[in-house]
Design a protein around this nucleic acid. Structure first.
Lengths: 201, 201, 201, 201
DNA sequence: AATGAATGAGAATTCATTCAT
DNA sequence: CATGAATGAATTCTCATTCAT
């Protein structure tokens, strides 16, 4: 016996899922609200009960899908028992691998990110989820421990995020010259290299 | 005495310039052909004498603006007499700097590339300009000489291009967390690091 | 201990009051049932328990608010003990003043009447309230006594009502060029003049 | 051989005429742009070539139709050779008659004015047509000559305009209790009476 | 009686493209 | 070559009303 609120949330997710699959197929611009409601199996008016307008839909999709990816990463991190023993570089590669796997399986998120993997962190930071802030903090600490300045750590993380996001989106969406499998080892060694390059900066 | 062809080309450039400035301000989707022709000072019908449709306009802008950037790079390279004596890494940094400077001064191109600096090379490759192919070849040779496999060279170049493009577009368009001045040194050391990482791969 | 009927009537009035204030602010057309129910603090479905549709609401508001104004006029008339001794013209001015005061203080009614002060009398005549018919009759008698034909009396009363309604609505709603204070003396002498003009017609 | 400009103006009038006839039948709110373009025999997009939006259409109709009425009045006035010899009161009655005749024959204007005959003068004043300003001035002079203060003249004219407009619109649209024929003599004597009442105020 | 989620027809407006002049 | 009026399908969003709970 699902409550009213559960039903509402389920319907919201129906719309979110329909829309993100359409955005992947046809792009945001080429997708009409009409397409979304038809695929979600609801009436046009119902859509506007859940979303202010088309842009609100886009925002909510990015947040919602990003949160899914982050939660997935956190879950994985928790499960790997020896996470604590990993070096910063190893941790970075671990997370990079998780993100690549996730985007490969959720191409619709890759399409939405449009190479801006940083969006994830932005929308994550906005929602004040204690688990997220904890994660952020622990990452920063790891950087500092290895000799990075606070600013250097942030910039390095940003460059790596952008590089991984850009290359990975191209790869999984087929818009770049290489498949994810082909480029993954090179991308990972690039991550390590950039990380090392800025140590003690 | 400008020939008919020169006049045509001049009008084509008027449209191209008007459109790219509008695409920067309001995005491709939000720019109407009406806006373009008004800014270019021509009639609506005239537009379709020069471009097949709106998408053709976009394609031609990217090619045209990319060509400008590439030509600028080639000119610079030619002027620096000791270009031949530079190592691969030094050349890469030299080009990266040129691209960063150019995009900073031509934000409209940054907006059009939308983080896909690779587009440039694609649209360049399409047009068979001997100077471009020469440039490409000399770059490849430099890689091979330093011990890269052909495939490794291509992938490395691609990753670096994507990284620079992504970070640089964010920076000049103000969509990222850092300005170009702030991030440039870090980005350059990242370029070197990635380059080194794949040597002998 | 409020009876069920009293409760119903109270809720009906809540809706009526909310709606008329919104109709003043935003006009009938621009006011959504949604706005009304939100302001009245009830559910959308509840609205349709009390009113057939949006137009029924409008009708009932005009009747309800007109009745309020008429009741107010009757009360005032009763209190002024020497009402009987007044001439027709004096009575007319007395009532005109009451109406002007009332509309000044209840601009929402002025907005609803939309210059049709006659609506008041129509919706009043519909409801068969003995007090209203008494009032009407006594007014007609006063006319006849002063030499008007029955038809002349009706037409004169109509013209005066329309003139006062039109000028007064403009004044209190700020849609005309004069404030009520500025125009009131002129309007009152116009009332007297029209009254005199048709005597013995 | 009609010029392009003549054709445009003719099309604009087509739309204006179609719209005002529909506004009479169904009210402004109930008329869709779709109805207007169907009746005018043009495409929906064409409508927006001539009018900014639905409200612009309404404004332009009122101006256009008001101008027609005013021009008609001026023409009539010019033709009646002894206009100069008429007293103010006679002039007022002459104009009132013209307006009543006109609105009876152009009910669509009556519907648009919505009892606000003053709109006419507003929209007329806005357009700086020398003939209109001349008319206004000569009317004001006539008032002053007969002993009115400037303010008194304005207010009196306003009250009369509002009264005639209100009563007359009701009459021709059938929303009031009397037909124009029935009420015209009473309305005219009311005009004279109000005029007299404020002399020397 | 009361609720409020769902409906879907219908509204206004936009805009890429065509074509007669 | 150049023009710009005309097109009409497509799009987003609104809102009075219903009905299962």
């Amino acid at each position: 016996m699902p409550t009213v609120d559960e039903k509402k949330n389920q319907k919201r997710r129906q719309i979110l899922d329909a829309a993100s699959s359409l955005f992947l197929d046809k792009s945001f611009a080429a997708t009409a609200i009409d397409d979304v409601v038809k695929m979600a199996g609801i009436a046009k008016g119902t859509f506007y009960l859940y979303f202010k307008d088309k842009y609100d839909l886009l925002d909510q999709i990015v947040s919602y899908k990003s949160a899914e990816m982050l939660n997935n990463a956190i879950d994985n991190l928790k499960k790997s028992e020896d996470a604590d023993k990993l070096t910063l570089s190893e941790k970075a590669l671990y997370i990079a691998d998780l993100i690549m796997d996730y985007l490969e399986e959720h191409k619709e998120l890759a399409a939405l990110l449009n190479k801006n993997l940083v969006y994830c962190f932005k929308s994550i930071t906005a929602a004040d989820n204690p688990e997220y802030s904890q994660l952020m903090e622990s990452i920063m600490k790891a950087f500092i421990n290895e000799g990075y300045s606070e600013n250097g750590a942030m910039i390095t993380a940003y460059i790596i995020t952008d590089m991984v996001g850009s290359v990975c989106c191209d790869a999984v969406l087929g818009t770049g010259p290489y498949s994810l499998d082909e480029i993954r080892p090179y991308l990972k060694s690039a991550v390590t290299a950039v990380l090392e390059a800025h140590k003690n900066d």
